[in-house]
Design a protein around this nucleic acid. Structure first.
Lengths: 160, 160
DNA sequence: CAAATTTGCGTAATCACTTACGTAATTGTT
DNA sequence: AACAATTACGTAAGTGATTACGCAAATTTG
């Protein structure tokens, strides 16, 4: 008996988490396959810097929708590996700006090639299905933004 | 600019995790709304025991697809709250069996009512969409089981 | 323009798991 | 029956994020 199926929507959160962990591990496997010293968790920050050039801690945290201590931690690791550098902003002394280091810029093309391949495999894995999980996820995120779960719940109770 | 959209499948794992956290918090809100001292993370274990009656640590871990130390931790909390009890198995002295306590059984009907309501709200939230995330998730879990991500990746490379 | 508020960052503690490892009980092998 | 291998459980430490809190710099406002 697969209890997880029986639980259905109620165990949704755990299943999402497990799936996300599998996803992270999968990307880790790919980096290892290429013998590249890069972790899946670095991707959002590193990718954003590769596009934006330079950005402050808070800006990155907001765009990537994580908390700023999370960015600080990942930035610390990437800085230790020499892939990014940071310096105080000239315009605003509160801000610390991050950008790719020379070493990071050298690594970038290799990573971009991997990312492109990952994207292609993902396209096959995700987009070729009748129920597209990426679209489904986006719809759910939008629905959540529009009205909180508890509000939906209360509404349901007034009706029933 | 919404980077998360641009990232698409590549940031899939982080989005899954975030969504799962929102889901967990939502259920927590509902318990609080009812003034019930129960946490979202208890659900899988408590629900399984309510169905199965009695089960060992490892059995639960396998069914719920988490590691056994995870079960031990949650069981510890539930035991402290007096909602479950545990005793060494008579047949196998290595095993420790868990089951609902009297207090747990008294709480159960209230929880079942909440779970039923949550399920109804979820049905509206999840199933009424064009792209059903539960089905999509199931499809993805099945696909993953069938062939690992790295294998897909390698296959893609041999072809390209 | 001084005081109050807000913003950006950093550290510490916490959380819900995990992996790693050790011990005791059971099972399998000869 | 002895010994090896496996299984069940427990503890400790690690992970990748979070919340809570504090300080310093910038901005707002009376």
């Amino acid at each position: 008996m697969d209890l997880l199926i029986e639980l259905g929507a109620l165990a949704f959160a755990s299943r999402m988490k497990r799936m996300s962990e599998i996803g992270m591990q999968s990307v880790a496997d790919v980096y290892q396959y290429y013998g590249i010293d890069f972790e899946a968790k670095y991707f959002p920050l590193f990718y954003y810097l590769s596009q934006k050039g330079e950005a402050s801690i808070m800006e990155i945290a907001e765009v990537l929708k994580v908390t700023h201590p999370g960015i600080i931690q990942i930035a610390k690791e990437l800085e230790k590996k020499g892939l990014i550098i940071s310096k105080k902003s000239a315009e605003d002394a509160r801000k610390r700006n991050l950008k790719l280091s020379k070493k990071g810029k050298i690594l970038l093309p290799k990573l971009q090639k991997i990312w492109a391949d990952v994207k292609a495999v993902n396209a096959d894995l995700f987009e070729s299905r009748k129920h597209n999980i990426l679209i489904a996820l986006q719809e759910l995120e939008d629905a959540w933004e529009e009205k909180s779960y508890l509000d939906r719940f209360k509404e349901f109770h007034h009706l029933s």
